[in-house]
Design a protein around this nucleic acid. Structure first.
Length: 590
RNA sequence: GCGCCCUUAGCUCAACCGGAUAGAGCACCCGCCUUCUAAGCGGGCGGUUGCAGGUUCGAAUCCUGCAGGGCGCGCCA
């Protein structure tokens, strides 16, 4: 199924071709001037340069060939040579009808589906998520859903930070605090049996509390640090006590994180972590050496990745440190290898902070050199930092950071207040009311993020995010819920949807907006920019709201009522789909 | 020092491959609830797109320089 832009492009391209001009110049886009036209083609302006004819003359020739097309109610030449196309009501009605009948509500699929892996979220064991994780989760989840909906086979991987020195620190800290745990760990390490019930008592809040203390102590206290390193080495050697305690850390953290993510409408297919590729590292290093990619440099083993034409020399990938340990770039490289073996993705999208751009460029180049991926199969989709209202970035590691769970609760509380103020949902059961407050909060947070282009930094302002008026997530939910309410009333009144007949200006605008869905998804997909979907969802809501205000539905005569009900239910279907692609769920009522 | 990114209305942000009169929301002002959810709708106010050049029929968009801001730059992850 093709949208109107595509259908008209074919017609205009044919007209260009028949004039001996390159057909691609006939590409049609939505009009910049809705007062003048529905669609436009700027090709005559570009063609003028090539053939040395005035653009208006070319445009006129194209317009003559389009005359008589029953789909068009008007073809006009404007300004320096814009070709303005106005659609007939019949053609628009027909398209709206097709969208109404389409389970994909007007969206096309990609021609050649790929296997795609999206790496996002990036949670760590024992570190609660903070606002910095919000963007990675929100944007990554949306990209995952978008690629999946367009037809690719997609896996989302949380890429859990669950290995290394930080685990050694934590094991030591927990053993210090809990003698029963320490005794069991020591016994297991000595090859004895031990009661590990004490492990089960270790909670996430214990880890949350102990980790920052241990990290700080490790920085100043060299003995403490050395012991943590020894424990880390023991863990890597799979000493049973350390290993089993670590597994407890990982489980308790993952359960809590999955709950937090799920509350945000973020769900992963895989919880692969650094620990999963640990065993691959030694053979990989041997293989890299065999491929002559490893170079000894200042006691370390590196891969040089700089290329001809680089504006500056890119640092090498440090594979093995001078102390003989693997670096985090090594783990990333092993992860690429692991994914190639298990899933063989044609595209891996790393949804990670823009500041990691150099790091990924280095790792990707090393992977290409090693043959672990084909050039271009690895992509870093970076995003800007979230700044405070003072313009400075939110701290992500130390000092008074806002926990993600706390922020969600604050937003949820605000949603409750607003629902009460507006007198919404008062007669609903408490659990449904809570469900609604949660959905409103998630919609507010996600839409506030996703309406911005991912690459730019933006200001994180809780007051603004929780103001539920205007271009906000709750506005979108409100519109969707309004349609649901309308459709319920229609059922009660025995009114049914019928054939769509576009007549009123507000109906035209709504139908044209419904048609623009595919273009918005294509752009979002190509540019990895969910803000295009967010923008479409907002425009659709606005178009519906105007239609809702201008066109009575249930009181209209049956034929008109049927048409308008069909428009309303199609709008709802597309709006819910768009919101779903943003990771936003709509309640039944509010 | 080298490199990357950013600078658009009072504030927060959009703007498809260069295209017509640069768009939204918030804030401010004015209207609209005895009709389907007013978290809504309509109208108004608000711009030398950081500055200076260049390319082009046409520049927020491409190129150069400058100013201001952010970020990154081998043995942490």
């Amino acid at each position: 199924m093709s949208d109107l832009k595509g259908v008209l492009s074919e017609a205009v391209e044919a007209a260009f071709a028949s004039l001996g001009l390159p057909p691609e110049l006939g590409r049609v886009t939505a009009s910049d001037r809705p007062d003048l036209a529905d669609f436009q083609s700027n090709g005559a302006l570009a063609a003028a340069k090539r053939v040395g004819k005035p653009p208006r003359e070319i445009a006129l020739g194209v317009a003559e060939r389009l005359a008589g097309d029953p789909r068009l109610a008007g073809v006009e030449i404007a300004g320096p040579g814009f070709i303005n196309l106005k659609l007939s009501d019949a053609a628009l009605s027909q398209r709206a009808q097709a969208i109404a009948a389409d389970p994909r509500v007007g969206a096309a699929s990609v021609a050649e589906p790929r296997r795609v892996l999206v790496d996002y979220g990036g949670p760590n064991v024992a570190k609660p998520m903070h606002v910095g994780h919000l963007r990675a989760s929100i944007i990554g989840e949306s990209i995952k859903r978008l690629y999946r909906f367009r037809g690719d086979t997609v896996l989302g991987d949380a890429h859990f930070g669950d290995w290394g020195y930080q685990m050694g620190l934590l094991i030591g800290a927990v053993m210090d605090e809990a003698p029963a745990v320490a005794a069991a760990v020591d016994a297991l390490n000595a090859g004895e049996t031990a009661d590990t019930a004490a492990f089960e008592a270790v909670s996430l809040s214990d880890l949350d509390r102990l980790y920052p203390e241990a990290a700080a102590k490790g920085k100043t206290d060299t003995d403490y640090r050395d012991r943590a390193r020894k424990i880390t080495a023991g863990l890597q050697d799979r000493q049973p006590g350390y290993f089993q305690l670590w597994k407890r850390f990982r489980n308790v953290t993952q359960i809590a994180l999955e709950r937090d993510f799920h509350a945000l409408g973020v769900d992963f297919d895989l919880w692969k972590g650094e620990s999963d590729v640990e065993d691959l590292i030694d053979p990989m290093v041997d293989e890299l050496a065999a491929k002559d990619l490893l170079v000894d440099d200042q006691g370390a083993r590196i891969i040089r990745v700089s290329r001809e034409g680089d504006k500056r020399e890119l640092p090498p990938l440090l594979v093995v440190s001078s102390e003989g340990s693997a670096m985090y770039g090594t783990t990333d490289l092993a992860t690429i290898l692991d994914r190639k073996k298990s899933f063989d993705p044609q595209l891996v999208i790393y949804c990670v902070d823009q500041r990691q751009a150099d790091h990924f460029e280095i790792v990707f180049r090393a992977a290409y050199l090693a043959g672990y991926a084909a050039e271009g199969e690895l992509q870093h989709v970076g995003f800007g930092t979230m700044n405070g209202t003072d313009g400075k970035p939110f701290k992500t590691r130390e000092g008074g950071v806002l926990k993600l769970a706390d922020m969600i609760e604050m937003t949820r509380e605000k949603a409750r207040e607003r629902l009460h103020e507006a007198g919404l949902g008062e007669d609903l059961p408490a659990d449904e009311f809570e469900d609604i407050a949660g959905k409103v909060a998630v919609a507010a947070l996600k839409f506030a993020d996703l309406q911005n282009f991912r690459g730019t930094s933006y200001v994180f302002d809780l007051d603004r995010f929780t103001s539920f008026e205007g271009k906000t997530g709750p506005y979108l939910l409100y519109q969707a819920v309004r349609v649901k309410s309308l459709l319920r009333r229609a059922v009660e009144a025995g009114a049914e949807a019928g054939p769509i007949a576009i007549a009123e200006p507000a109906e035209r605008e709504l139908a044209l907006t419904l048609d623009a869905f595919d273009a918005a998804l294509a752009e979002a997909y190509d540019r990895q920019a969910p803000n295009a979907v967010a923008e479409h969802a907002y425009r659709l809501s606005q178009a519906f709201s105007k239609f809702y205000a201008a066109c009575p539905i249930l009181q209209a005569e049956p034929a008109v009522r049927g048409s308008r009900l069909a428009l309303a239910s199609t709008t709802l279907a597309q709006l819910e789909r768009a919101l779903d692609l943003l990771g936003i769920a709509v309640p039944e009522r509010m």
